[in-house]
Nucleic acid binder design. Structure first.
Length: 209
DNA sequence: TTATAGATTGCCT
DNA sequence: GGCAATCTATAAT
């Protein structure tokens, strides 16, 4: 479904001031918007994972606050961006009130606008013909890919407030997913049995397999 | 001070 | 399906 900017508005802070499982589920279908040099880059969230904070051994917050994860212990609705495997940035949104460190990892988007810019940011040549699904999936399917496509980095974006109109925001345009699936989180070894990954059931931009 | 694993991706066989 | 790339946070020495 297309992005309708006229209906779109940021989610209120209370949206994020909840259990990360609820937030992850309810973020499906919302639109991540990046404004860069008057250009609009946008993608619909189709996959997200919940991280539960201090009681979750797989969470960065498990060992308590550090310089790296401090945003997680701050107020809800802020971007936590970290660098992983020497190559990739991952984007999270902080959840729960000040002092509690839950978050949601954004794992995949359906690209909506600024596709040509996304191809370039990913180091790919935009296809001359109409892009196929296999081309488009290289843009924002996967947590490291979507940050690169949107130019999201820790130095630039960590701790940004995602509930305000700015160069990085999450909007609700009224779209509601039909079918939502729950699965185990990907790429982790600890607490791997928990069903904390949420995906839009029939969406082709979901990662994995 | 040194070692190791990591919320990933892309290229190789 | 296997594995190297490449940096950093954290654990081990």
């Amino acid at each position: 479904m297309k992005f309708d900017p006229t209906r779109a508005r940021p989610l209120p802070r209370e949206f994020y001031d909840r259990d990360p499982r609820r937030v992850a589920r309810d973020l499906l279908g919302k639109v991540l918007v990046r404004r860069h040099r008057r250009r609009l880059l946008a993608g619909r969230i189709v996959e997200a994972e919940a991280y539960l904070g201090r009681n979750d051994p797989a969470a960065h917050a498990a060992a308590g606050p550090t310089a790296r994860n401090l945003v997680l212990f701050g107020p809800p609705g802020h971007a936590y961006v970290y660098f992983i495997y020497g190559n990739h940035y991952c984007l999270n949104v902080s959840c729960l009130p000040l002092g509690r460190a839950g978050c949601v990892l954004i794992r995949a988007l359906e690209p909506l606008s600024g596709l040509e810019q996304m191809f370039r940011a990913r180091g790919l040549t935009p296809p001359a013909r109409e892009p196929r699904l296999t081309d488009l999936r290289l843009l924002t399917t996967g947590p490291g890919r979507l940050t690169q496509a949107l130019g999201i980095t820790r130095p630039r974006d960590n701790a940004k407030d995602l509930t305000r109109f700015s160069d990085l925001t999450i909007l609700d345009d009224g779209f509601r997913p039909r079918r939502i699936l729950k699965t185990p989180r990907l790429g982790i070894s600890k607490a791997a049995a928990e069903q904390l990954r949420y995906v839009i059931g029939d969406n082709p931009f979901v990662s994995g397999r």
